[in-house]
Amino acid sequence: MMHTAELLQVFAAHRGDAIVISGRGGKQWLQISDTALDLPLGDPAMGGHSGFGLGLALAQPDKRVVLFDSEGDILMSLGQLATIAEQAPANFYHFILDNEVYATTGGQPVPGAKTVDYAAMAKACGYPRAFSFSDLADFKRELPAILGAPGPVFVALKVLPEVENTPIGQRVRWRKRSSDKVVSDARAALGVG
């Protein structure tokens, strides 16, 4: 199992000019980068990050779009894998942070926490390439090749859970921009807003 912050640091070195939808790694990614092409959307509605990433990748085919999704989100919208594979955006890099639990609700295990093979599911849906990593050194070694080839690619990453159990109203808000501001900033930066 890896620490989310550490693997995001590894990714940051290879980011280039990619658009980053930080998803469930949003809090940690914010410590690394917070430009208009970083999209910390929070949680507009669970299960939708992969769809948002697909839409953005289709709309901006000349830019790499990198998403840090989660296993809980994927489980909530498995059909999105089929849609993404069918559309097959070559600029889409779909990572999931798999901590095996619903961390923001206290750490209850997700269904199939120990049995589901997400990379195999992505592959079976039609992603041309899919990988799984649980060791940081392996991930670090393979990442340049993963990002260097066309997408869509799916990368499942086993991470340590960072469980939150404080009532939502008492949690420190880590986002600096509202979700709609994140979108309008991105549109302006892309020259479409």
Binding site: L58, Q60, A186
Partner: peptide, 12 residues
């Protein structure tokens, strides 16, 4: 809905 939002964010 989320696909639509992503397309819009990217200018479609």
């Amino acid at each position: 809905c989320s696909i639509t939002a992503g397309l819009y964010a990217g200018g479609r």
